[in-house]
């Protein structure tokens, strides 16, 4: 198993390398360069040209790529943000935790909703409750993230006034509230966007869990347990449920990747100041140093997500280890 995991991690290195090349070329296609952030009326064109020469921005492409990648690896220097006039990493760092907590909340809610629904649908296959859950799943599947976000804002925020329609915390509470109040305020702001993500994120998990449970119900070992006279409840808990839930762990990585994509949109519609909103704002202000770095970060995150999936799969399913 360890051999498999190490090999899987080794494959990751050339993949990440290719991604840095793609983002580098993308950065070249975008307008502006490392010095755009320093342009202001006090700097003359000659000075800029001189700086460009000094920084090696006029060198051929491969040389510049090497410069760029070494400064990222050895100095952690991703460049300067042109709107914020600070290092890119600093700007993103401020937003990263917001996105992290929101994503975590979405993931937790997704599993908290999906597992009971999948179990109920699988156990009562073909009955009214199964049909109702399937209908919900189909509606969730057919609902673009933003559409649900808009409807949630309209009903729960504008009409009912239960939740704020945007932001991650109110400035007033941050300025004068106790730590507990600030924490509760943040949770209050998080509920609506997190629910939006979770309600839509459950689709794949419910489908999979339902199919697993139905599959196990008709398996030989369940038949054996039945013929031995084991009570139905015990069969369900020990034999069916446990064996159905194990394959789900491997789906965690994909859930992470899916959540990251969803968060991008959710942050934008709820004005939630995380990396997703930073991405859209930077695109609008053509701050491509930030955009580029964000693309790399999201690539790396989805790579890690897939890695987690593969590793969990080898732990959970011994058949893969043999290969």
């Amino acid at each position: 198993m360890w051999k498999m995991i190490v090999r899987r991690i080794l494959i990751l290195i050339p993949q990440l390398f290719v991604i840095t090349i793609v983002t580098f070329l993308l950065g070249n296609a975008m307008p502006g360069d490392a010095l755009s952030g320093m342009i202001d009326p006090t700097v003359t064109a000659e000075e800029l040209a001189h700086q460009r020469e000094l920084l090696g921005l006029n060198d051929p492409l491969p040389v510049r790529y090497l410069d760029w990648i070494t400064s990222i690896i050895f100095e952690g220097d991703f460049g300067q943000s042109f709107t914020h006039r600070r290092p890119v990493l600093e700007v993103i760092g401020e937003r990263a935790s917001t996105t992290f907590w929101l994503s975590l909340m979405i993931l937790i809610l997704t599993y908290a909703i999906a597992i009971p629904l999948g179990v109920i649908a699988g156990r009562y296959k073909g009955m009214v409750i199964d049909k109702a859950i399937l209908l919900y799943i189909f509606i969730a599947l057919s609902m673009p993230t933003l559409v649900l976000g808009i409807l949630n804002i309209l009903f729960f925020s504008h009409n009912l006034g239960w939740f704020p329609s945007g932001g991650s915390a109110s400035a007033l509470v941050i300025a004068s509230g106790t730590p507990l109040e600030v924490f509760l305020n943040r949770i209050h702001h998080m509920i609506l966007p997190a629910m939006t993500g979770a309600i839509l994120g459950v689709v794949g998990i419910v489908f999979m869990l339902r199919a697993n449970i139905i599959d196990r119900t008709y398996s030989e070992y369940v038949k054996l347990a039945k013929s031995k006279g084991v009570p139905t409840g015990v069969i369900f808990r020990r034999h069916i449920f446990r064996n159905s839930i194990i394959p789900l762990t491997a789906g965690l990585g994909f859930a992470i990747v899916g959540t990251l994509t969803g968060v991008l949109f959710i942050e934008m519609i709820f004005f939630y100041p995380g990396m997703g909103m930073l991405f859209f704002n930077s695109i609008s202000s053509q701050d491509f140093a930030v955009v580029n770095t964000l693309i790399m970060i999201f690539s790396a995150l989805s790579a890690i997500g897939m890695l987690i999936s593969d590793i969990l799969l080898t732990i959970v399913d011994p058949r893969i280890r043999v290969q």
Binding site: I11, P14, Q15, V18, I19, V22, L26, A29, M30, L260, T261, L264, F279, F280, I283, Q286, V291, L294, I295, F298, S299, S302, A303, M306
Partner: peptide
């Protein structure tokens, strides 16, 4: 394909459309 799948495609599409 694995490498290509790692790229966050929505972000890429958005950036390319801007360019």
């Amino acid at each position: 394909c694995d490498t290509w799948a790692m790229v966050p495609f929505l972000m890429m599409v958005i950036v390319f459309l801007i360019i």
